[in-house]
Amino acid sequence: MSPATAADCATAWNASKVYTGGAVASHNGHNWTAKWWTQNESPGSTIVWADQGNCGGSSSPTDPPGSSAFVVTDAQFNQMFPSRNSFYTYTGLTAAIASFPAFAGTGSDTVKKQEAAAFLANVNHETGGLVHIVEQNKDNYPHYCDRSQPYGCPAGQAAYYGRGPIQLSWNFNYKAAGDALGIDLLNNPWQVERDAAVSWKSALWYWMTQNGPGTMTPHNAMVNGRGFGETIRSINGSLECNGGNPSQVQSRVNAYKRFTQLLGVPTGDNLTC
């Protein structure tokens, strides 16, 4: 039940601060109370925090920043991923989008929805429908440590396996993503599999800033009319494109077609790579 007037906002949540049971912090326009000891688990993305309602002057419940503007609704998200792991929350996604406002926020409404569909279609493929949080083939785990990097692999030889919606892997990617997000992922890569907001941010960081094996970021591919196929090239093109693994490409395309249909927009051209 909403209070008659909104409470003042508590001190803003700090990822590095330790909170014990009963501690209060504000995050995304709400006050939150810690249920037990917690650190670096963002309110709204874990069960650790109890929502005490909106704060700062508004008297009616509000969505987290970005969620009301995101072109995919909570209901549509659940339609896209009916068997998703509960770790992959819609709240975690919209919290992450707030850090990347250009994502699904550039161009016409059609382009915005196409980009959202493209991102989620690739995520669908990488995680088996948002089911898997970590890479399933553990034999690969020790391979993702590039010791030629000056910082090495401080979390361990086998610590940089694929995690999250886009399966972030390799020590250099964890280093770069962590530096960009202000999170120490090089020394603590496990944050990507434990905090939904961090996990989604790692995927959006790649989508918005990395060319991968392609020639442009997936974001630029979608907003500049290069098409869904170019996003595949930027994510896994060296293994899948140019006839490398057409069935994997088709899996991504099929999901993209489903999601654009759900969002009511055309797919656009250049679906494959």
Rank of each mutant, 00 (worst) to 15 (best):
N245T: 14
N28Q: 10
L168V: 10
Q261T: 15
Y88S: 09
A75K: 01
A180H: 12
G21N: 09
A25K: 02
C145H: 10
Q39G: 03
W13R: 13
K138L: 14
D179P: 00
F172L: 04
S86V: 11
A203W: 03
G128D: 02
T91S: 15
W49Y: 07
N28E: 15
T106A: 13
M222F: 01
T209K: 06
V72F: 09
W190K: 12
M80R: 02
V223E: 00
P165Q: 08
T38C: 15
Q52H: 10
A6G: 14
A34W: 09
W190N: 14
D269L: 12
G128M: 08
S58G: 08
R226W: 09
K201V: 13
L186C: 02
F228V: 11
N28G: 14
S86C: 11
S42L: 10
R252A: 13
D8N: 12
A221M: 10
F77D: 10
P65L: 02
G57C: 02
T38L: 06
N122H: 05
Y141D: 11
N54W: 06
D269V: 12
L130N: 06
A12C: 09
Y206C: 00
D63C: 04
A50M: 06
T5C: 04
W49L: 13
P61R: 08
A176W: 14
G225P: 01
G22L: 03
S234H: 04
Q167D: 03
G164R: 08
S58H: 15
R233V: 05
S251G: 08
G214Q: 08
A116F: 02
P43D: 14
A25E: 05
F100G: 03
G214W: 01
Y161N: 00
G44L: 04
F259R: 11
G229C: 01
S251W: 00
T215P: 00
A176T: 15
A23V: 04
S99G: 13
K257V: 10
N236Y: 15
V71D: 07
T272K: 10
H132P: 14
Q39D: 01
A203C: 11
I232T: 11
E193R: 15
S68K: 15
G178K: 00
S45F: 00
C145E: 07
A98C: 06
S108W: 10
L239S: 11
T46H: 12
F259I: 06
R252F: 11
G214K: 00
Q210C: 03
E135I: 15
H132G: 04
F100S: 01
M222C: 06
A23Q: 07
I47D: 15
E135A: 09
N188L: 05
K138Q: 14
K35S: 10
G214I: 04
S238R: 14
G156R: 04
S2L: 13
D195A: 03
G156W: 06
G44K: 09
S60M: 12
A180M: 05
S202F: 05
G66Y: 00
Q136I: 15
C55N: 07
G22E: 06
N270P: 02
E41A: 08
G264Y: 13
V249S: 03
S202M: 07
E41D: 11
G264A: 07
T11N: 12
T11S: 05
N236K: 06
L239E: 13
A118T: 01
G53C: 05
I235C: 04
P213T: 13
A75E: 15
T46M: 11
L271M: 01
L239T: 12
